[in-house]
């Protein structure tokens, strides 16, 4: 619609290895203040993580070009009058830092993986709208994370715990203990999903204690519970489900 909307649907610089590097310089000068030096966004000012942009199936080079050109109406993201070539350089840069995920087909048995998933994971994780909600939705996780990173998360889930899944224990006035994951918190209240997957809000004045835990609610799956082969089967199932 805009006069800026280029008829160009593919990045003319896609094959030029210098474009991503030049785009990186432009990014650091023009975009990093809001989106962070690593393009991973700054949560406190609602600037999104751009490394995840291409994990969304609707994102194309042309759509990213248009967002940079036209801005996001109603947001702080302004339109940019850069020359077309510079915007394509930015697109090349964002492609280069996009989370790569697991592009190669994982060597595993998806049917056996589905059985293992249903047995071990689905109480808390969802795939294609089936399963629980205590942990992150895994429908497209293989688009965003590598096979090694996912294997590490299954073996040692407390090493990195994603925001909105940080574990907490609330001690009530009658010494009851409620476990869950923190969805939101301020100086006076806390909003959690408890371990029964019920959303619950509390005033801190009604609690004896709020304990932010270091250990994830997800158990560590050791070799004796899930072998390396089992994990590959689960990941192959997740890959096939996306």
């Amino acid at each position: 619609m805009s006069e800026f909307t280029s008829a160009q649907e593919v990045n003319p610089l896609a094959a030029d290895p210098r474009a991503a590097r030049a785009g990186g310089s432009i990014f650091r000068a023009q975009c990093a203040t809001c989106h962070g030096a690593d393009a991973k966004g700054i949560q406190s000012i609602e600037a999104p993580d751009l490394t995840l942009m291409f994990t969304r199936s609707e994102s194309t080079d042309a759509s990213v070009f248009r967002v940079i050109r036209e801005g996001v109406p109603g947001s702080i993201m302004p339109p940019h009058a850069f020359p077309d070539a510079e915007i394509w350089m930015l697109v090349s840069y964002l492609r280069s830092v996009a989370i790569a995920g697991t592009s190669a087909q994982i060597d595993g048995d998806p049917r056996r993986g589905m059985t293992l998933f249903n047995l071990n994971c689905s109480r808390c994780h969802r795939v294609d709208n089936l399963g629980g909600s205590l942990g992150p939705d895994l429908s497209t996780i293989t688009n965003r994370r590598s096979q090694d990173a996912l294997t590490n998360s299954i073996r040692n889930p407390s090493a990195v715990i994603a925001r909105r899944y940080k574990p907490v224990t609330l001690v009530t006035e009658d010494n009851g203990r409620i476990q869950g994951t923190v969805k939101s918190e301020d100086a006076f209240s806390i909003q959690i999903m408890d371990s029964n997957q019920v959303l619950r809000g509390f005033r801190k004045s009604s609690l004896q204690e709020v304990i932010h835990e270091d250990i994830s609610l997800m158990p560590s799956f050791t070799e004796s519970v899930l072998s390396g082969e089992d994990i590959d089967d689960v990941l192959r199932f997740l890959q096939s489900a996306r």
Binding site: I26, R28, A29, A32, T33, G36, A37, I42, S44
Partner: peptide
């Protein structure tokens, strides 16, 4: 803070580098 020579273009911001903020510590 990681400084970098900026492009210095009229009408465009000129921070001259980038900042890595540790979001976990604030």
């Amino acid at each position: 803070y990681v400084p970098e020579l900026p492009a210095n273009t009229r009408g465009q911001s000129n921070f001259g580098g980038t900042v890595f903020i540790d979001a976990e510590q604030g």
